[in-house]
Design a protein around this nucleic acid. Structure first.
Length: 142
DNA sequence: GCCAACGTTGGC
DNA sequence: GCCAACGTTGGC
């Protein structure tokens, strides 16, 4: 079981959109960055992730789960790009802001801080637990 | 809306 | 294979 973080601008795809997509989930299309794509290729069914609002909100607002392995991204003809499917699992009761993450020394190595522009990131198990705790999810989902 | 950071492209 | 130019992301 691995943990991840998915960034989305709420203007184009929000947490509400993701929840409305229901249990079968949706393709996480639009990633055009090799590192982010490689992260998706490494995902397994059942892996959990944070859903993060970028540009607006700047906070972790939900928990998602990978429900389909990486496959071709249907939003492009270019065969290089792939995506997984994810589905909403639950809300984070108290959304955890970027500010909160930056202010927590335990999270100073988190990719959200160190790799600001990476849109699909790995999350370490201890970071996962800490952010869940801050968000009011105890025990942390696995 | 600005701009810094950083990834990608393309000429050489 | 280097690196300058360019485009995009995303915090502020």
């Amino acid at each position: 079981m691995a943990f991840w973080l998915f960034k989305s601008e709420p203007d184009s795809w929000s947490w509400d959109n993701q929840k409305a997509a229901g249990n079968k989930g949706t393709e996480w299309t639009g990633v055009r960055n090799y590192q982010a794509r490689n992260n998706m290729r490494a995902m397994k069914i059942g892996d959990k992730g944070f859903f993060y609002h970028s540009n607006e909100g700047l906070d972790v607002v939900g928990i998602v789960e990978v429900c389909a392995l990486a496959h071709h991204d249907s939003s492009t003809e270019d065969p290089r790009w792939e995506c997984v499917d994810i589905r909403a699992v639950k809300d984070v009761p108290n959304s955890v802001t970027l500010k909160d993450v930056k202010a927590n020394p335990k999270l100073e190595k988190m990719a959200l801080v160190t790799s600001m522009r990476l849109s699909v990131q790995p999350v370490q198990p201890d970071e996962w637990k800490e952010v869940c705790r801050m968000g009011g999810l105890v025990p942390a989902p696995e």
